[in-house]
Amino acid sequence: MEVVSDILVVLLLLSNLYLLAASRITACIQTVALQAVVLGVIALTSAAGGLTLVVVSVTLATMAVKGLVLPWLLRRAIRGADVAREVEPFVGFTTSVLVGAGLLVISVVVAEPLCSSAPADVSAMMIPTSLFTILTGLFIVVTRRKALNQALGYLVLENGVYVFGSSLAIEEPFLVELGILLDVFVAVFVMGIIIFQINREFDHIDTDKLSVLKD
């Protein structure tokens, strides 16, 4: 169990670092989809109450929504936007990765006191990794120019929160799990629609040019 958990942690870490370094939007979308699969497996391996039908079905639904439906939606939203191929961050890729390494150190330090109350059969790195995923998501939201990347950053952040929940073996009731999944789905769905409209209205999705409203 420990080995599987460690492999999953490494996969999650690498996917975060790759997200910080990837320059093509489609590659970012694929990575986020891969992340969804990884966190589904994490949820399955760390389910506290064993693999009941409810747990499995909710996790599979999460994997399907975050790994298949949402990436498809986001890819659709930028279809026809030729300008939207490259990420064009405010902070360069090399710097991003270096910052990512710093964030990882911070999450390990911060998670130190939290780890003691985690269940025993979860990898000790799981909680720092989930915090790292959350911080990576925030970093992407703040430093990426394209609206689509910001939406991806939100998804990464959400993934991090999800992993945090499953690494602490917090068992949400079925209804709540489903509600959270529905909310994330609709959130990205609406974001996709708005990105599509922004693209049509402005012929770009660069959020730094969305700066008319200010004081």
């Binding site: 939201v141 939100y154 929160v161 945090f164 929940g165 917090i170 959270i180 409209q197 922004i198 409203l213």
Partner: peptide
């Protein structure tokens, strides 16, 4: 549907969603 309202909607959606995600972490 014009550029200012889309800008406002995008900010609203993104800032509130990210903020609310923090609340979910708090609930955990």
């Amino acid at each position: 549907r014009h550029h200012r309202s889309l800008e406002a909607t995008w900010k609203y959606l993104l800032i509130c969603s990210v903020g609310i995600a923090m609340a979910l972490l708090g609930i955990f």
